[in-house]
């Protein structure tokens, strides 16, 4: 089988985003939620590279990708910090038990 590389990347992007979103829909563990977010964003990073490759603006795309990685890491750190605090205060990481705010 000889798939062209852009197609492989495209499939990877779709898989990463799909797995991430699916995970967000079903998982109940907060850590896994953060991981799922990371998966989606990694898909987005690849999408930037692919787009840069398609239009011949690879260096611009790379700089964008790097920026996204930095910003996204901060989000992940904040998310994990919140998760740690929640574990400390409530003793659980389950999303279902985190539903005191509703209606």
């Amino acid at each position: 089988m000889n798939l062209p590389i852009p197609l492989v990347v495209l499939i990877t992007i779709l898989c990463l985003a799909g797995i991430g979103l699916y995970c967000l829909l079903i998982t109940r563990n907060l850590i896994k939620v953060v991981i799922a977010l990371q998966l989606i964003v990694k898909g987005a990073v690849l999408a930037f590279i692919l787009a840069g490759n398609m239009t011949g603006q690879l260096n611009l795309a790379q700089s964008m990708a790097l920026t996204v990685i930095v910003a996204d890491t901060i989000v992940a750190v904040v998310g994990l910090a919140l998760a740690v605090q929640i574990r400390l205060k409530t003793g659980s990481l389950d999303i279902k038990s985190l539903s005191s705010l509703k209606r």
Binding site: A17, G20, L21, L24, L30, V33, L37, I40, V41, G43, A44, A47, F48, L50, A51, G52, M54, T55, Q57, A61, M64, V68, V75, V78, G79, L82, A83, Q85, I86, K89, L98, S99, S100, L101
Partner: peptide, 27 residues
């Protein structure tokens, strides 16, 4: 904390969608 987590996760999903959108435009 619960409110913070919900806000973070939903915003992050939204921002990921934005990134995909930008990448499409860019492509």
């Amino acid at each position: 904390l619960e409110a913070g987590v919900k806000y973070l996760v939903q915003s992050a999903v939204g921002s990921a969608l934005v990134m995909f959108g930008i990448a499409m435009m860019f492509s």
